[in-house]
């Protein structure tokens, strides 16, 4: 039995957990993973609504999102490697050259 409320609240929970990860973790790797969780949450919401409207458009959207997520992770991790070369750390608090 399909219940959109459950699915949406689940996706909201995932979204909040992801947001927690970005804000509270100081390990950039894990922050990137948390962003992935948030994107997943959005995809889940999309598919719930697709089911609601019987509309394949959202499926296409979700597919695009996955590709974008993969591309984003690639750039993000490459940047992380770059940063690691300079700082020898993936600690986000070490990124403190630029402020004020």
């Amino acid at each position: 039995m399909f219940n959109p409320t459950n699915c949406l609240i689940l996706s909201i929970l995932l979204f909040a957990i992801g947001a927690y990860g970005v804000i509270a973790k100081r390990n950039i790797l894990i922050m990137l993973m948390s962003v992935e969780i948030m994107l997943n949450a959005a995809n889940l919401a999309f598919l719930t609504f697709a089911r609601l409207y019987n509309d394949p458009t959202a499926h296409v959207f979700v597919l695009m999102n996955m590709a974008v997520a993969a591309a984003e992770v690639a750039v993000g991790l490459a940047l992380l490697i770059c940063v690691f070369r300079h700082k020898k750390s993936v600690d986000s608090t070490k990124l403190n050259l630029l402020k004020w």
Binding site: R26, L29, A70, I81, T93
Partner: peptide
């Protein structure tokens, strides 16, 4: 990708944050 990068960086405990 994540696993590759983790292995590439080979983080020590104090580098993790």
């Amino acid at each position: 990708l994540f696993l590759f990068v983790i292995m590439l960086l080979n983080l020590k405990k104090n580098e993790m944050g």
